[in-house]
Amino acid sequence: MDTVLTDTPALPPNPHADSLQALNQHIVDTGFAFVPGWQMRDWLAPGQLTDWPQFSASWDDMPHDTYMADGGRYRRRRHATLSATAHGIQLEPHQPHYQSLDYNPLNGGVVRHFAAVDTAVATGNTMQQVLTFCHQLFSQLGQHTDWHIEVHQFRIEARPQAQGKPTPEGIHRDGVDYVLVMMVQRRNVSSGTTTMHDMQLRELDSFTLTSPLDCAIVDDKRCMHGVTPVEVTDPAQPAYRDVLVVTFRKR
């Protein structure tokens, strides 16, 4: 079933992000921010999210991640590489993904080849709106416009006798400059709480991405993050958590 973006009643300003200027300042002050989906809709020009049904449905056709060192079969994913300059955002030829063991002690240290994000999804209106938002925000924060971008589609599946682990490597950094994690849809799961930490692993905050377009934004050089496992609510129904992860690294 496609996730539908419905009209949302007016809500009071979120203390983490009641304007783009406030969002920028909050990240400067704390190193991270939670942005609710209703706010992201305004910033992403909702009239332009015309391909949202196709965008969200693309999570339904993803292969398993075969690089899980814990043997888990709970994660599906696709991956794409892009670049951004002052002149715009460009999809790059498909490339493998690599993280060192310093950043990913479970699955790092090997070159990982994932299925590509469908080109129509990567170049579609929703993805381009999200990437443009990230480019503008991160370029302002980092005082830089030339970026290496990676996009990851993740589906974390839970089963009655097995949790799904969004971050099986634990509390971590991604080894980039900035990270955006955007909720696409949740079905029949509980928990999946995002936790933010300083470099000494002290917890700074926690929140749960529940609605489409809910986002966590992280200054990866200043904060660490993790997500608690998701569990099935109704054993008779499929259970999963779909998110888009976008990382920006200075070139």
Score class of each variant (00 low, 15 high):
Arg76Gly: 02
Asp51His: 07
Ser58Lys: 02
Tyr74Asn: 04
Gly88Pro: 09
Ala115Val: 05
Gly88Phe: 09
Ser56Glu: 12
Leu91Gly: 02
Met62Pro: 04
Val117Asp: 03
Ala69Tyr: 07
His87Asp: 15
Pro105Ser: 13
Phe114Ile: 03
Ser58Trp: 05
His79Met: 03
Pro93Ile: 01
His97Cys: 03
Asp51Val: 06
Tyr67Asp: 14
Ala69Glu: 12
Ala115Asn: 07
Asp65His: 10
Pro53Lys: 12
Val117Arg: 03
Ile89Glu: 10
Ala69Cys: 08
Asn104Pro: 06
His113Tyr: 06
His64Met: 09
Arg75Met: 15
His94Asp: 14
Tyr74Phe: 15
Asn104Gln: 15
Asp61Cys: 07
Trp52Ala: 02
Ala116Tyr: 04
Arg76Val: 01
Ala57Cys: 12
Leu82Pro: 01
Ser58Pro: 04
Leu106Pro: 01
Gln99Ser: 10
His64Ile: 10
Ser100Glu: 14
Tyr74Met: 07
Gly71Ile: 11
Gly108Ala: 10
Arg112Asn: 09
Tyr103Gln: 11
His97Ile: 02
Ala86Lys: 13
His79Tyr: 13
Ser58Phe: 07
Gly88Cys: 06
Ser83Pro: 00
Leu82Val: 02
Gln54His: 12
Asp118Pro: 04
Phe55Ile: 05
Trp59Asn: 05
Asp70Cys: 01
Asp102Cys: 08
Pro105Gln: 07
Ala80Phe: 02
Gly71Val: 10
Pro63Ile: 11
Leu91Gln: 13
Trp59Met: 05
Gln54Cys: 06
His94Leu: 04
Ala115Phe: 01
Tyr67Met: 10
Asp118Gln: 15
Gly108Asp: 03
Arg112His: 09
Asn107Gly: 00
Arg112Glu: 08
Leu82Cys: 10
Gln90Tyr: 10
Asn107Asp: 15
Thr81Phe: 04
